[in-house]
Design a protein around this nucleic acid. Structure first.
Lengths: 230, 230
DNA sequence: GCAAAAGTGTTCGTACTACACCCATGG
DNA sequence: CCATGGGTGTAGTACGAACACTTTTGC
């Protein structure tokens, strides 16, 4: 009754980081045979007894000492991928957010190189990974506007200007500084710290932090986060 | 290098319909062995050469002459499902919307019964299907507010009161008729027809239809659909 | 003429938009 | 004292929320 499928199941990870006013994605260089090299999303086959998300975390640990602030299933790609020419592979993609300023990438091994790429300087990738990445960026953009996940790309304590820049950069929009600050602060889940940033130039700025407990509290009372711009 | 996985891949479908001011979901009764019967979401194993969405459509055709107005991948469930005790099964769930007033359910066979269930009268289902259904309902609710998919649950031509009721019912909110109508009509992609409904009581009402071309046109110009209520 | 649903306008308040000047520091 | 980025307030507008009466039909 049950036909043999011969379909393999893999996970792929889109790890986003934000540094120097740019959105980055983590890629690895895979070697196929002796000459063929391709940049690709980190990922690999799921082990028989391992959950999908555990598989992603395991694969990532092999390449980085990554501390994921956020991870979510993105989409399952499986219609026409043939990793090697014999087997169909279905890939469950997850995307994740990290504080790139605090992320240690493991040294390259013989087998693999690991590197951050600016999102608009990503080369042609293996398999359908450019498509997967595109979908991840779309999701990130959308989610940024209705859930407070921008904080997961920043250090625990951050400058308002960093947050503002993050939104401008990723959403590719201009934002009025004053209105942005007013709106975010009006929510009440961003707290001022007493620490001042150690930037070299200009007036020193206070660091802020996101209070997740207050946020969750508001959510329970029917609050809905939203950042929109003309 | 590649370990043998022994993981099977299946699809499951959450088919939503709307009739008599109620949201319904399509379930089938599966028989396990001689005595065990469970209601479950339609679905089954993916064939080796078939895309995931084709698998869903094939499975549904086996039970209904369904005309899907909308179908979208929902989520991939795969952490701890054991359909039979030997094999792990990963299930890619899709949800779909149909015009239930126009849907023919195939006659029950010896092996299976097929039936609409009101969403709040769904019994305990096989596997993790209650969880999958819950997630599908959440997604439907969310998507209803920011994409015009409500029309995919209605006949091509519908009454404003039907549309309004659909939103009230699914979102479980009260809506002001006047504001709702004003807002929807202001978008400009709903057209009045010259046909009047054949209801038995009250003032006859004009039928309306959704002009998808006009909608797509607006989208290209940066329009964003949104229905929110207090 | 009554019951049942359809159709329609106005007022009010809130929330977003646009916009420009002063402040604190380092060099 | 100048360059650099940080910090703040106000006026106008537009959109959503609240709200009630009249119309058409069948019985």
């Amino acid at each position: 009754m049950e036909n043999f499928q011969n379909i393999r199941i893999a996970v792929d990870a889109i790890v986003f980081g934000y540094k120097n006013n740019n959105l980055y994605v983590l890629l690895i260089e895979q070697k196929f045979g002796s000459a063929e090299k391709y940049w690709a999303l980190p990922g690999g086959l799921v082990k028989p007894e391992e959950s999908l998300s555990d598989a992603v975390i395991r694969e990532l640990r092999e390449e980085t000492n990554v501390q994921l602030n956020f991870m979510e299933q993105l989409y399952t790609f499986g219609d026409d991928i043939k990793r090697d020419s014999r087997n169909r592979v279905i890939s469950v993609a997850y995307y994740a957010l990290v504080d790139a300023s605090n992320l240690e990438i493991k040294a390259d091994t013989d087998a693999e190189k690991v590197q951050w790429f600016k999102i608009d300087e990503v080369p042609s990738l293996a398999f359908d990974h450019n498509l997967i990445l595109k979908k991840a960026v779309e999701r990130l953009k959308a989610k940024l506007t209705y859930e407070p996940i921008g904080f997961d790309l920043l250090p625990k304590e951050f400058l308002f200007s960093e947050l503002e820049n993050l939104y401008c950069t990723i959403l590719e929009k201009e934002i009025d500084r004053r209105n942005f600050r007013k709106k975010i602060l009006s929510y009440g889940f961003i707290e001022e710290t007493e620490i001042f940033s150690a930037v070299k130039t200009g007036r020193p700025a206070k660091l802020f932090k996101f209070n997740k407990l207050k946020y969750n509290d508001l959510i329970e009372r029917g609050f809905h986060f939203e950042i929109k711009f003309a």
